[in-house]
Design a binder for these strands. Structure first.
Length: 720
DNA sequence: CTCCTAAATATTTTT
DNA sequence: TATTTAGGAG
């Protein structure tokens, strides 16, 4: 393949970015403007046309999934594998570094990565050790305190308590937590980044080695980077490294977890030679949808400025539905989804977006009732499920006896008579002798310091672990897991639970063995089992069982929708007090972030966009009568079509499950996909419209007799 | 250890 | 409202 065919499918701006001179370059890429394409083509261009070796490239993506996809696309473009290139998330890449340079990073070779739940448990443990009350010192707050400081590159000794007793105590807890992690070779997510940063900062030869290696650094979703990631990047880039950065300040929606949009502006100051390209032509949405999204985001003051446009003209108006309550909102979505299906369109084309997960329940209920298959994105991830983590805890303990979190998790799972009292004694011993829980247990058994029963149970437990360790040695990865499940009694423990939950647990364990069978390591530095364990904490893989999801309506939060697109999008709960969320209104930047979230949601839609708000909503048990979201009012009236409910309850039918609503619009036409009733043919769905004025004809697919053309002037059609 | 009741608590989430 | 969790009784 030659260069011209690499650049040929691109528009002018995209081409400018892809073939930009070999220096720093910043691409401000609006939604749907083909940013992934630019990034992959840039990499292909560097390799192919500039003769740069893949081993000189480092590419950073926001998610692991994104990393996999990017690699695949580049390999397709070049028709050759590019294994020498490093592609991954910040966490994935720093983890890789730390595995290679564990000695310089002052970590044990077998260091373990803690996920958020592990971290949370550990913090609670530390609080207990310090004799602090959980009600006074909320573990969640502490977790946030620790992570947000690590995200800024701050160790406990760098934080000023400002003569505040509260802060002083928090710092003390952070300190204790960190000491514990260091003693036990535990590394949380934020620590991966901070450690890797310090590794380079403190080891000049190492840094210059990587500076020489990675001469071209490419980063996606830059608006979501935090301070430590930026600092890490600055180190790596040094004086010579060329940065190619892609981002969109209007899609920065992770400020609440430390992401800094300002990093984009910072970049232009720190790297003054940086070239800038704006990608503003959108290939996704209709002109109407873009105009509406542009109008909303224009209300933000803090912007670099960008205006999306499309070659297409017109499109369907943004439909606003004012529902009676959250059930009516869901009912409306069901109705429209059925109509969509009746047109022969795929359910997977439909996305239902909401601000908070709690809103999904009513939607699920109604979809279930209407027998519409749906899929919820997000929620509990596969590798975070309790049964999976229990299994891993056994494996971890077998690899490394001193793994305290693993020990604590499974000493009594399944129950084997080792209660809280016994565990507390083990903990006390461990703390006082500065040894691991496992060692403390051994000590307690030797000194016969415990009641007979507990001692016996503990002895049995240790024997169990020793025995399984030996037993599984020679087996393959999935067999190891299976044996562990059997011998530990975990499997029969879960089998005893015949509830629906127990069933799904067993299925998950089966799925786990599948995943293990398919696992191929990319880390040569670890044995297979350790590599698999590290992989699973770093990759949340929500597509583990993606095959089962044929054609489903897609339900997800607005955050989870970033990067996706759908022909038909519903944004629900467009109400003050829900979206924008009241908690965001405390700080001025909060509202702007909510508005960006709205912008992200709207720009997910290709052709049809529905914004729904309810007059009344029950959330967390209490009722409220919210006002429509300000974001709706920020859309120019001419882009909107309002669908309003009319007469609520007819006098002669006291119970109406389906409130009737009607189309009241400047636009008196019927719409595609709408349900109508004919006095003779019954109910049906509008498939097509033809002609103008009096000659207008309409095709309706009736439930009983199938599709039929009718003249609108004669057929008295009633919208239902 | 298991079962029960009472209490707390619920924005967004990838790594 | 509903779901998870902590604590107490049996």
């Amino acid at each position: 393949m030659d260069i011209s065919s690499l650049l040929a499918p691109l528009n002018q701006a995209q081409r400018k970015a892809v073939a930009a001179p070999l220096g720093h370059h910043l691409v401000l890429a609006g939604a749907g403007s083909g940013k992934t394409r630019v990034l992959t083509h840039r990499i292909a261009w560097l390799i192919q046309s500039q003769g740069i070796s893949p081993s000189n490239l480092l590419a950073v993506t926001f998610t692991n999934k994104g990393a996999g996809e990017m690699k695949e696309r580049i390999e397709n473009l070049l028709a050759t594998p590019i294994n020498a290139m490093w592609v991954g998330t910040f966490h994935g890449l720093t983890h890789r570094l730390l595995r290679i340079h564990w000695q310089e990073a002052q970590l044990p070779q077998a260091f373990q990565v803690l996920d958020s739940e592990d971290q949370y448990r550990l913090i609670r443990q530390v609080l207990q050790n310090l004799n602090l009350d959980e009600d006074r010192w909320s573990p969640r707050k502490i977790q946030w305190f620790i992570n947000s400081h690590k995200d800024k590159g701050l160790r406990p000794q760098h934080i000023e308590d400002g003569d505040n007793a509260n802060t002083w105590q928090m710092i003390r807890i952070y300190h204790n937590y960190q000491d514990y992690c260091n003693r036990n070779g535990l590394v949380d997510f934020a620590e991966l980044l901070l450690r890797a940063y310090e590794l380079w900062r403190n080891h000049a030869p190492l840094l210059s080695h990587y500076q020489n290696r990675f001469t071209h650094i490419l980063i996606d979703e830059f608006q979501d980077t935090n301070a430590i990631q930026y600092a890490w990047l600055q180190l790596l880039a040094g004086d010579k490294g060329a940065l190619f950065i892609v981002g969109d300040d209007d899609q920065a929606i992770y400020g609440w977890r430390g992401a800094r949009v300002e990093n984009i502006q910072q970049l232009t100051q720190d790297f003054p030679t940086i070239g800038i390209t704006r990608l503003e032509q959108n290939y996704r949405s209709t002109q109407i949808i873009l105009a509406a999204a542009n109008a909303v985001i224009a209300h933000n003051a803090e912007r670099l400025g960008k205006n999306l446009w499309t070659q297409d003209q017109g499109g369907e108006l943004i439909q606003i539905y004012r529902a009676f309550d959250e059930r009516d909102e869901a009912r409306f979505i069901v109705e429209r989804s059925l109509a969509w299906q009746a047109q022969g369109r795929a359910r997977a084309d439909i996305a239902v977006l909401y601000r908070s997960n709690a809103q999904s329940r009513v939607l699920e209920e109604m979809l279930l009732q209407a027998r519409i298959p749906y899929r919820i994105h997000g929620g509990l991830r596969f590798f975070e499920r309790a049964e999976i983590k229990d299994t891993f805890a056994y494996l971890r303990l077998m690899i490394h006896r001193d793994n305290d979190p693993a020990f604590a998790r499974i000493v009594n799972t399944p129950p084997r008579g080792i209660g809280d009292r016994t565990l507390a004694q083990i903990r006390e011993k461990a703390q006082q002798a500065q040894i691991s829980l496992w060692q403390a247990t051994t000590q307690l058994i030797i000194t016969r310091y415990l009641p007979q029963r507990a001692m016996h149970a503990l002895y049995e437990f240790q024997q169990l672990i020793e025995n399984i360790t030996i037993a599984i040695e020679e087996f393959s990865l999935p067999q190891k897991i299976e044996l562990t499940l059997n011998r530990s009694g975990l499997l029969s423990h879960y089998q005893k639970d015949s509830s629906e939950r127990g069933q799904s647990r067993l299925e998950n364990l089966k799925e786990l063995m599948n995943a293990a069978a398919q696992f191929k390591p990319e880390e040569p530095h670890l044995n297979l089992l350790s590599a698999f364990l590290a992989h699973t904490t770093l990759e949340s893989d929500d597509n583990t069982s993606s095959e089962g999801w044929e054609d489903c309506v897609q339900l997800m939060t607005l955050h989870a929708a970033k990067g996706l697109e759908f022909p038909l999008v519903f944004i629900t709960g467009m109400e003050e007090g829900l979206f924008p969320s009241p908690k965001s209104l405390d700080e001025p930047t909060g509202l702007e972030e909510e508005r960006r979230l709205c912008y992200v949601g709207m720009t997910r839609a290709r052709n049809h966009l529905y914004l729904i708000h309810a007059d009344q909503r029950r959330l967390y048990g209490s009722n409220s009568c919210p006002k429509p979201s300000r974001f709706i009012r920020e859309i120019p009236a001419k882009l909107i079509c309002e669908l309003r409910p009319q007469t609520y309850t007819p006098i002669n039918s006291p119970i109406t499950h389906k409130p009737e609503w009607n189309l009241v619009a400047n636009n008196t036409d019927f719409q595609f996909g709408q349900r109508v009733r004919h006095h003779k043919f019954g109910e049906g769905t509008i498939l097509d419209l033809e002609g103008e004025g009096d000659a207008i004809k309409i095709q309706v697919n009736f439930n009983q007799i199938g599709p039929k053309w009718l003249s609108l002037t004669y057929a008295k059609l009633q919208i239902i």
